[in-house]
């Protein structure tokens, strides 16, 4: 390709990205303006006179909710990896009767509408006292992450060289020992990817959060934003500052693990 054409392509690409990400820019722009400035027309295209008052309000009113979501998301990551990693390994390596059927089931359950789970688990959670609880939220959010993690980890784990695993057996280690001392270290990147995505799914969950919490004791950030926005006297700079804070995990994921993101998007659903 001639140089001029390559430069043109890059320029077009930059413009495309700027246009496409304009809503993200607008979120940041609004978050840095005073609530009075937001009621001016035409709006300020740049935060020429930035103020942190939106962020102060975000931290004051939504700080607890951000922490709640952090705990739920971290709990979901731990629970998901503990459950999914051994299963993914077994589905990738062991020729057990029914493993292929199990993979199909895992693929299929991802398609069950969340509203069905919310609807039918609500009476159960209510009876078991799991409403407004971290345990309840972690279990519910794990329905979003476990199938995904099993599928993506299985893809990675079927790529672990057989010789490595055989070497583990030769040393006399059992299946679980081999898994812990050979497979887990080798698959570290895959586990990080699955963990990052599990964090993001749990962090972003709104349906289970709004169904299984009443806001009395425990309120995830997504529900916090929902009620914040629904408030008639909404300070939009505060809402947008909260939105920016709630976007931090996604930004971190994109910046630190970009090469895994594409694998993550497709890994759950499309595998060769």
């Amino acid at each position: 390709m001639p140089t001029a054409q390559r430069v043109t392509n890059t320029a077009v690409g930059v413009v495309l990205v700027l246009v496409f990400l304009a809503p993200v820019y607008w979120m940041i722009n609004v978050s840095l303006q005073s609530s009075a400035a937001l009621l001016r027309t035409p709006p300020a295209w740049f935060p020429a006179d930035p103020t942190w008052s939106g962020y102060a309000e975000a931290v004051r009113t939504q700080g607890d909710n951000l922490l709640t979501s952090l705990v739920i998301a971290l709990g979901t990551v731990v629970f998901t990896l503990l459950l999914s990693a051994p299963a993914a390994y077994a589905l990738a390596r062991f020729r057990l009767r029914g493993t292929l059927a199990l993979v199909l089931v895992v693929l299929l359950v991802q398609m069950v509408p969340g509203i069905v789970m919310a609807n039918s688990l609500y009476p159960v959670f209510s009876q078991l006292g799991l409403l407004d609880s971290y345990v309840g939220m972690i279990l519910a959010d794990s329905t979003l992450t476990v199938p995904f993690a099993v599928l993506i980890l299985r893809t990675f784990m079927s790529g672990v060289p057989k010789e490595l695993i055989e070497a583990g057996y030769v040393d006399g280690a059992g299946q679980w020992r081999t898994f812990g001392s050979v497979v887990v270290p080798v698959c570290r990147n895959a586990l990080i990817t699955a963990g990052l995505f599990s964090f993001l799914f749990a962090w972003a969950d709104f349906l289970f959060a709004v169904s299984f919490t009443t806001g009395n004791t425990l309120q995830p950030i997504t529900v916090g934003i929902y009620r914040f926005v629904g408030n008639q006297t909404t300070n939009w700079n505060g809402v947008m500052a909260t939105a920016v804070l709630a976007s931090i995990p996604a930004a971190i994921l994109l910046l630190t693990a970009q090469r895994y993101v594409a694998a993550g998007i497709t890994g759950g659903g499309v595998k060769d």
């Binding site: 809503p23 929902y226 998007i265």
Partner: peptide, 26 residues
């Protein structure tokens, strides 16, 4: 082209944002 990988990566951001965030922005 130069930077195509980075630009393509940036375009993934909307998919990674919590839907509640995107909804509030819109």
């Amino acid at each position: 082209f130069p930077l195509s990988g980075v630009l393509r990566g940036l375009l993934l951001l909307p998919w990674l944002l919590p839907l509640v965030v995107s909804g509030a922005v819109f």
